[in-house]
Design a protein around this nucleic acid. Structure first.
Length: 674
RNA sequence: GGCUACGUAGCUCAGUUGGUUAGAGCGCAGCACUCAUAAUGCUGAUGUCGGUAGUUCGAAUCUACCCGUAGCCA
């Protein structure tokens, strides 16, 4: 056995302005499995996390709800804790970045870096909302993309063409907060000189602290040259005030990772024998691992180790990034109902299913994983219920009925049991290397062997011969022992099922070192189903609920009230309208008119000129050739720019919200519409 | 647009340093069994290994370009 290790693991801090969703859970489940594995191996492993409680979005959200930020983050923290508890995420401490410990560490790290000359002050120009009297983060400015002209894009990059730019380049910029046109204003900011740490970071990067693909990514950043990092924000801001500069606050990303330390400090303060310095001190022997999503590598692999180093703390042993979750091959989508909150899942399905499914797909790399809901239920049902739990189920009945639950004093087939034990090394190595999918594959291969054994031995036939009673007991006892080893291997993934199995087996919590010792002449409890099958109806119900949740939690999506229906008319009134199919032959903007397009339309045997107020919604060249509907008997109307001989039909509120009517295929110019 | 990854059977994934007929599980078909939560066992079918071009005696594996997907661009 290897020596006992002291390990601190963290997951990234969830932001305290919204609920946990199943995408978040990939990371918490991954980290939790790893932490539980380490503990099961007999190591001292602490797992801490916290809510990331600062920043502009939280400030604005609280304001919008008419409450203090403190009230908001307390409410969100409670929901987060409940979600994690129910998914059996085994945090040793779940804290908040809005805490005295975090403030103390943030100051300390700032001051030490400042005193070391790593912080500089500079004046920058930044977008300012004159109505709200606040500087605007890039994400709080929207406008037209300077590259492709797409409307309603954020201040930092365009989701349509993928271009990145600065908010100043955005056309028609608007503050998302007030709708005002942002102005540029000057402000003093503090910058962290990342470049001071370049050599150390390069060395750290190469020391095996990062996955190879992440290290490659860092090479790119080094090559591009490390830039200074803006670590301050102006009031109003929800966060920690910078000690030597009232009215300036630490940027949320400065104090977020420090939250790992603060949470751990808080744990140390109430855990006898747990010493902060043993983990974070410069010469600490303990290991520290951060599990993060691939989107925040920059902060954890560059800023964080640099800040720590500048402040005289040790750097993390490693940072492990994982990919994102897609649902049925697509990004989680609110409209498709695949944006599933943790709570919504819990309301319908067993968390062990998701823990297993994620484990079965998680590798050590940064690839995205897909939650394919068909595959999800098939896989859980086949592997866990059909294979693993079934082993216990098919042996236990004989033991209970015939032997009062008593297991044989010897193993019927020691070689088979030994093979199961021997596989443990490879499985442990897979867990250690975060290759959970490999571990699961190996475990399921063992489960197949156990089922094969039972089939070969056919205890149901042996049971018919009273003279072979001992043999029957031996077969079933071995089956139970194989099941016990399998549950031991699965324990980090399936804590609740493992506990139920331990109760069934009447044993204390399984440890890795225990596994080679079989249960002999031991009495087990009557079998009760340890896990039930995934019910597809529940998945369907969950998806429905996910859609409903979003409708409920999206008050911003102000639904325009439907325009009231006009007063009733008779058929005769309707019949007075002569609606005709026309083909648009030409379209051009009307000089001097902001809204008008001049269209030449073909009515079958005549051509008419129509002036239509659809310029904001349609590009003239896109209209040519289209079929649409014309009110053909409308009195011609004289306008400043000419005479309009009819009106074409469009739906919508006006401006860009206009949608031309188009007939189904087969309609021809001149046809009357009834 | 640049960069880092990913793209292998209907689905989810393995494929070690390029080396004989490309694998597993699920699903599907057939058979067997009936102890078990319609669970299990055996047998079988299924792939131009994203595309194109190259390097090589030999490429899923190496190179270039292209297409698609994700993230990052502080």
């Amino acid at each position: 056995m290897t020596a006992q290790r002291s390990i601190l693991v963290t997951s990234a801090l969830p932001y305290a302005n919204g609920p946990i969703h199943i995408g978040h859970l990939v990371e918490y489940i991954q980290t939790d499995i790893w932490a539980r594995f380490q503990r099961m191996r007999g190591h001292r492993c602490y797992y801490v996390c916290a809510d990331d409680a600062h920043g502009t979005p939280i400030m604005l959200r609280a304001r919008q709800e008419g409450i203090d930020p403190e009230t908001l983050i307390a409410r969100v923290a409670e929901a987060h804790r409940a979600d994690f508890r129910d998914f059996r995420i085994s945090f040793d401490n779940y804290y908040s970045t809005h805490s005295p410990e975090n403030q103390r560490f943030a100051r300390l790290i700032y001051e030490r870096n400042r005193d070391g000359g790593h912080i500089v002050r500079r004046t920058i120009r930044q977008a300012y909302d004159p109505v709200e009297k606040m500087f605007l983060p890039d994400r709080f400015i929207k406008g037209t993309c300077p590259k492709c002209g797409a409307e309603d894009q954020y201040g930092d990059n365009c989701e349509v063409c993928g271009a990145s730019y600065s908010p100043a380049e955005l056309k028609n910029p608007r503050s998302v907060v007030s709708g005002a046109v942002p102005e540029e204003r000057e402000s003093d900011h503090y910058f962290f000189r990342l470049r001071d740490f370049e050599d150390a970071l390069r060395a750290w990067t190469r020391s095996g602290s990062l996955q190879p693909e992440v290290a490659h990514k860092l090479e790119e950043w080094f090559a591009a040259g490390l830039q200074e990092w803006d670590i301050s924000r102006d009031a109003p801001y929800f966060g920690f005030e910078i000690p030597d500069h009232p009215g300036k606050y630490f940027y949320v990303w400065l104090d977020a990772p420090i939250g790992y330390m603060a949470s751990f400090q808080n744990l140390c303060d109430r855990t006898p024998g747990l010493v902060f310095e043993d983990f974070w001190g410069l010469d600490a022997e303990a290991e520290i691992y951060h599990f993060i999503g691939k989107d925040i590598i920059y902060f954890h692999a560059l800023f964080w180790p640099a800040m720590l180093q500048g402040a005289g703390f040790r750097t993390p042993s490693a940072v492990y990034a994982h990919g994102f979750l897609t649902v049925d091959g697509q990004k989680m989508s609110k409209s498709r109902g695949t944006f599933i909150q943790a709570r919504t899942y819990l309301d319908h399905l067993n968390p062990e299913y998701l823990r297993y499914y994620f484990a079965a797909k998680l590798g050590p790399g940064v690839e995205d994983i897909d939650l394919n809901l068909e595959d999800f239920s098939r896989r859980v049902n086949a592997d866990l219920v059909g294979k693993v739990v079934n082993i216990a189920s098919r042996c236990a009945g004989f033991l209970t009925k015939r032997f009062e639950g008593e297991l044989s004093p010897q193993l019927a087939e020691p070689a088979l049991f030994a093979a199961f034990v021997q596989a443990g090394e490879a499985i442990a190595a897979a867990y250690e290397g975060r290759a959970f999918s490999r571990a699961v594959r190996e475990i399921m291969a063992l489960a197949d062997r156990a089922n094969q054994y039972i089939d070969e031995q056919a205890p149901w036939i042996v049971a018919k011969d009273p003279a072979q009673s001992e043999r029957l007991q031996g077969i079933c006892s071995l089956g139970i022992n194989l099941f016990r080893v399998l549950m031991g291997y699965l324990r980090p993934i399936l804590p609740a099922t493992a506990e139920a199995a331990e109760q069934f087996l009447q044993i204390p919590p399984l440890t890795w070192d225990d596994l080679p010792n079989p249960l002999l002449a031991h009495r087990i409890a009557p079998f009760r189903p340890l896990m039930t099958r995934v019910d597809p109806k529940k998945i369907e119900a969950m998806l429905q609920a996910a859609k409903a949740d979003l409708a409920a939690t999206a008050p911003q999506a102000k639904k325009p009230a439907r325009e009231p229906i006009a007063p009733e008319i008779s058929y005769e009134d309707f019949a007075k309208l002569d609606l005709r199919i026309v083909r648009i032959l030409e379209a051009e903007a009307v000089e001097g008119a902001d809204r008008l397009l001049r269209l030449q339309v073909d009515l079958g045997d005549e051509t008419r000129t129509v002036l239509a107020g659809i310029r904001a919604a349609y590009d003239p060249k896109d209209l040519v050739g289209k079929l649409t509907v014309l009110v053909a008997n409308l009195a011609p109307r004289k306008m400043r720019f000419g005479v309009s001989e009819g009106m074409i039909l469009a739906a919508g509120s006006g401006g860009r919200e206009l949608f031309l009517l188009e007939p189904d295929a087969g309609a021809k110019p001149g046809m009357r519409v009834r």
